[in-house]
């Protein structure tokens, strides 16, 4: 039932765009253009990200990830997560599959959450770009305030979920 509603909505969306193009309905055409431009933007990143994730899965040893990002990694795990996040390209939509791969290899939940939030706030190219428009002071305040909060909240959320026996969804079955 839920699946059917989803399909109907998807069909309505596609028909609406096609009809808009045919009838020259401006807002509908803009909707289609927005969809395409975002699709193209993300397709410039995603396939490459997934190839790297695949290579990571076959080459990187589980022990390596466990040692640096797992249960025994302590505070250093967060440092690694933030460094890794700062080099992530794209945005959250890349961070999720990367986080999933790290999780599969034994990274602990709190480190995973820190990685995701950090990849939102401290990607290096983005921060440089931000500083050029809003000033270095602005970027510094954001980093200095958000990073400790990210670490604390991720530690709490991770510990809470770990206690509840939470497992991430399985993607490859």
């Amino acid at each position: 039932m839920k699946d059917l509603t989803k399909r109907l909505l998807l069909a309505a969306y596609v028909i609406f765009i096609i009809a808009s193009v045919a009838l020259n309905f401006e807002p509908g055409k803009r909707l289609g253009e927005n969809f395409l431009s975002f699709l193209v933007d993300m397709m410039k990143v995603l396939p490459f990200a997934f190839i790297l994730i695949g290579l990571f899965e076959v080459w990187v040893k589980r022990e390596t990830v466990e040692k640096h990002l797992g249960k025994e990694s302590g505070f250093k795990g967060y440092i690694w997560a933030i460094l890794l996040a700062s080099t992530t390209v794209g945005g959250l939509y890349v961070a999720f599959p990367v986080a999933h791969a790290l999780y599969n290899k034994g990274a602990r939940l709190s480190v995973i959450f820190a990685y995701i939030s950090a990849s939102a706030v401290c990607r290096v190219p983005m921060t440089i770009f931000e500083a050029s428009f809003l000033g270095v002071k602005f970027s510094l305040v954001r980093l200095v305030v958000s990073i400790p909060l990210v670490i604390i909240s991720s530690a709490l959320l991770g510990a809470y979920l770990e206690k509840k026996g939470y497992k991430m969804q399985q993607i490859d079955t």
Partner: peptide, 13 residues
């Protein structure tokens, strides 16, 4: 191994 990696990449994608 590389082939396997690409397979994982495709599947997840």
């Amino acid at each position: 191994k590389t082939w396997q990696a690409l397979k994982i990449a495709c599947k997840r994608f």
